[in-house]
């Protein structure tokens, strides 16, 4: 119960930080996505059976606040969650490497779906401009914030969800 409560509080703090601070810190036209970073780190450290329900709830909350489509956010968040579950078994001894992989490919997936969604909605956009002005700066910012967010989430959830120990 404490795990779910702490996760919800952490997620809400991540959303508030994103809206209040990180969305205003723009590099070209890209911004860091602390919510995605938190979700990736949290997914790597959670050990609960029904955590995916939290991911769906998180996605619905963000889509209610954001102008982003619900389906897009749910796809991105659940993909990151499932990838984290897979990485836990494959690279469980190097969670930081898993975190970098998740953030890198997660950011590409998220932005790719954003571009696709806007294209479907009929918005005229330049793929090259999206790539150079938004995607690459966002990836850079996310990679820069990967280590601090991972360290913070690891410290918070170490006691709540202890990591596996080598037998």
């Amino acid at each position: 119960m404490l795990f779910y409560f702490s996760s919800s509080i952490g997620f809400i703090i991540a959303i508030m930080l994103q809206m209040g601070i990180f969305s205003r810190a723009v590099l070209l036209a890209g911004t860091a996505d602390v919510v995605l970073l938190f979700l990736a780190a949290w997914s790597l450290h959670q050990r609960q059976k029904y955590s995916w329900i939290l991911v769906v709830i998180f996605g619905l909350i963000v889509s209610a606040i954001s102008a982003s489509p619900v389906l897009l956010l749910l796809i991105v968040y659940l993909t990151i969650f499932l990838a984290a579950m897979r990485l836990q078994t494959g690279f469980w001894q190097s969670p930081l490497l898993s975190m970098f992989l998740l953030v890198f490919f997660g950011t590409f997936l998220e932005h790719g779906l954003y571009i696709l969604g806007l294209f479907v909605q009929g918005v005229s956009l330049s793929i090259g401009e999206s790539f150079s002005q938004i995607l690459l700066p966002s990836v850079l910012l996310n990679m820069l914030l990967t280590i601090p967010v991972h360290a913070l989430v690891q410290e918070i959830f170490r006691n709540l969800a202890p990591m596996r120990t080598e037998i």
Binding site: M19, G20, S23, R24, V26, T31, S66, A67
Partner: peptide, 14 residues
């Protein structure tokens, strides 16, 4: 103004 849109692809404020 208390916040900005989470996604960089949308220009919204809260």
């Amino acid at each position: 103004v208390i916040g900005r849109e989470i996604s960089p692809y949308y220009q919204y404020i809260i």
